[in-house]
């Protein structure tokens, strides 16, 4: 069976749609994550989502919702999202109200949320059937995306696109030079909070599909590749989304043909494109000025 023929299969259609939507959502955010040197934020928030999933899974088991008919409430994502939002706000507040740098604030949130996740997952009885395994959470299960997962991902991607459409110009200005943007009346602190909270939602929802460990790759590699090729931030944004989508489609096709895990194949395709772009950049461009 070829990949095109396999696309008739509903599970592959859902996987492709979910991957493309996540590439769009993370791509729009990734531009600012890379340009603001916040690459560690993807890791931190993905692991916060892991902590939230642990608390969510434990809550579902402890409250007896596992066996109930309330399908949506049985998904730990509904606790993982607010938990990730809380972690994102914590990182923001630590950075803004103390002298701590972003990576230190993210590192603290990373460690605390992973510890919470491990602790709460360990409290769940081994025979409890949540429909999602710890391995799925860590490494992703894009081929196992359900219709309701897809609906949530579509909703979150639409939210990310809308927020970015409204705030892109001011966010870009604040990313270029926060002081200059503030002098022009841009509320840079509010925009930073918006970026962190939006990243928390997109990452929490996407981490279930892509996997906590591979989540940061989606956020960073396409944007870093686009940074090597683009001359303007608008070009970088468009290119990030396109490269993310291309890597997702190519990665899914390769994983289907080679019978290897989808999430890791997508990330490796992203890395291959990055390597090609870095090589092209080295050959084709004069060095940047250092001062």
């Amino acid at each position: 069976m070829t990949f095109l023929e396999a696309l008739a299969l509903p599970f592959l259609q859902r996987a492709l749609a979910a991957g493309v939507l996540i590439a769009v959502g993370t791509g729009l955010l990734g531009v600012f994550v890379v340009q603001r040197r916040l690459s560690f934020l993807g890791d931190g928030l993905a692991h916060a989502a892991f902590g939230g999933m642990g608390i969510g899974a434990f809550t579902i088991v402890a409250t007896g919702l596992v066996g109930s008919g309330l399908a949506l409430l049985r998904d730990p994502i509904w606790i993982a999202v607010p938990f990730s939002l809380l972690a994102a706000y914590g990182i923001y507040a630590l950075r803004r109200r103390t002298d701590l740098s972003s990576d230190t604030a993210i590192g603290i949130a990373f460690a605390v949320t992973v510890a919470l996740g491990v602790m709460f997952f360990s409290l769940i009885p081994p025979d409890a059937n949540l429909g999602v395994s710890l391995m799925d959470l860590l490494f992703g299960s894009i081929l196992g995306v359900r219709a309701d997962d897809l609906a949530v991902i579509a909703l979150v991607t639409a939210l990310a696109a809308a927020v970015m459409a409204v705030n892109w110009g001011r966010l870009a200005y604040a990313t270029f030079d926060e002081e200059l943007a503030r002098a022009d009346g841009v509320d840079t602190a509010r925009l930073e909070l918006v970026l962190y909270l939006l990243a928390a939602v997109v990452i929490a929802v996407s981490a279930v599909v892509v996997g906590v460990i591979l989540m940061a790759a989606y956020l960073v590699i396409p944007a870093a590749t686009a940074r090597l090729l683009a001359r303007t931030l608008a070009q970088m944004t468009a290119l990030t989304v396109v490269l993310g989508v291309v890597a997702t489609v190519a990665g899914l096709a390769a994983s289907f043909l080679l019978d290897v895990p989808s999430g890791s194949t997508i990330v490796l395709v992203q890395a291959l494109i990055f390597a090609a772009a870095a090589t092209a950049r080295r050959r084709g461009r004069e060095p940047l000025r250092s001062s």
Binding site: T175, F176, D177, L180, R227, L288
Partner: peptide
């Protein structure tokens, strides 16, 4: 107001013309 900041404040890696 037209403000000219110190050159060191902005991100030199920012892709912009």
């Amino acid at each position: 107001i037209g403000y000219v900041p110190q050159l060191k404040t902005f991100d030199r890696t920012f892709p912009a013309t």
